[in-house]
């Protein structure tokens, strides 16, 4: 039992089942589409900015527990952050789940997102965990093309 518990932490299961900030786009929000062709996961991320600060982030779509939980927790974490802070956070998150970078520094800045550390043991699931983040970035750049994990 213990092996998959490292991946499927209670927090992840909870966010996977009851995603937060899970809704359609509100007026004035920028939306981008994300797609993981490997498994068919599809996601939309909506962002509202206010003077360089992320005022609100929400998402919608369908995916596995890892991608849904990652999206849900990302929206909670990013709210109120500057774009610069969001970028640093994505880098740390990416380092954490791919087992690269300096774990101490990365973990320090990630807060709750540290529960995704178990993903590093499952390389094929890294794309599940990063889909929302790639889509978030696409929303910022007004990309018309769907963000892809490929």
């Amino acid at each position: 039992m213990s092996e998959f518990r490292e991946l499927y932490q209670e927090v992840i299961l909870d966010h996977g089942k009851n995603p937060r900030n899970f809704r359609e786009a509100a007026e004035g929000e920028r939306t981008a589409y994300g797609h993981n062709p490997l498994c068919g996961d599809k996601i939309q991320v909506h962002v509202a900015m206010d003077h360089g600060v992320i005022e609100n982030v929400a998402f919608h779509g369908q995916g596995c527990a890892i991608s849904t939980a990652s999206a849900s927790m990302m929206t909670q974490t990013l709210k109120g952050k500057t774009l610069e802070a969001a970028e640093t956070m994505f880098q740390s998150f990416h380092n954490l789940i791919t087992g690269t970078g300096d774990p101490e520094t990365d973990l320090a800045g990630l807060g709750k997102l540290a529960v995704f550390a178990g993903v590093r043991e499952f390389p094929v699931r890294v794309k599940c965990a990063t889909l929302a983040w790639h889509t978030f970035k696409a929303a910022l750049t007004h990309s018309e093309e769907p963000a892809s994990t490929e």
Binding site: E3, F4, L7, Y8, G16, K17, L38, C39, G40, G63, C64, A65, I66, F122, R125, C128
Partner: peptide
Amino acid sequence: GAHPHDVGTILDLDGIAVRAGHHCAQPVM
């Protein structure tokens, strides 16, 4: 209640290899 990818990962940890995905037949999905 469980996405096929999550099912696949948990089965894999028991040594069970199944396919989880669209099987290169997206129109069927």
